[in-house]
Design a protein around this nucleic acid. Structure first.
Lengths: 95, 95
DNA sequence: AAACTATTTCTATGAATATCGAAATAGCAA
DNA sequence: TTGCTATTTCGATATTCATAGAAATAGTTT
């Protein structure tokens, strides 16, 4: 019954980041893949424009759900497990 | 890696319904409360207009997260545990 | 330096959201 | 039936979102 404004706002932010099917797919691919993902690969896999993928990457990153490693011009995405463990434990299993 | 369009769309819909702080609060209050909630009570608790609460109730209901029981003019909201168990197991514990 | 590759930002657009107050709907009670 | 109470719908508005193409940014390779 007691209200924790900060936590509820953070959860709402996380769910907002997860409220788009392609972003769910990105998370799922990251969970199942044996390699990191870059923008171009996701663009080809999901058949959407690179600029749209970049937009989704940004949304996931800003919410704290993913991390980025840069190698040359390419940016590789991976899951930020701290966030999942802290706010959405066991969510990845139910995907 | 294999894509399940229907499931991902459903999850995105559920997360959309949970992407608003006041709706998270409604779910949380329902989880912790010993009684069902109606529109007026939530309006007073969260300090938002009854019409806005009604809008949020509808969003939660349409996503399948809650159920409604009507008694006279009053509609009582409760959690739809089937949906939580099926798509978001253990989510309520992490709230 | 010039050409190439990968990503991001910008611009534009159409769709969806959150909000409130007012009006409508519907049941209850005197 | 008239008034009271609870909720929903409607109308209006301001904001945010998802999308793509074009332009900009930045690293690579020759």
């Amino acid at each position: 019954m007691n209200i924790e404004i900060a936590k509820e706002n953070k959860l709402a932010e996380l769910f907002g980041a997860l409220s788009e099917p392609n972003r769910i797919r990105i998370i799922k691919i990251l969970r199942d893949s044996d390699h990191e993902l870059n923008c171009g690969e996701v663009s080809r896999l999901l058949q959407i424009a690179p600029s749209t993928v970049s937009y989704h990457f940004k949304a996931l990153r800003q919410a704290g759900l993913t991390k980025t490693r840069q190698q040359a011009q390419t940016k590789y995405l991976s899951l930020n497990m701290e966030t999942f463990n802290r706010y959405l434990p066991s969510f990845l299993d139910s995907l």
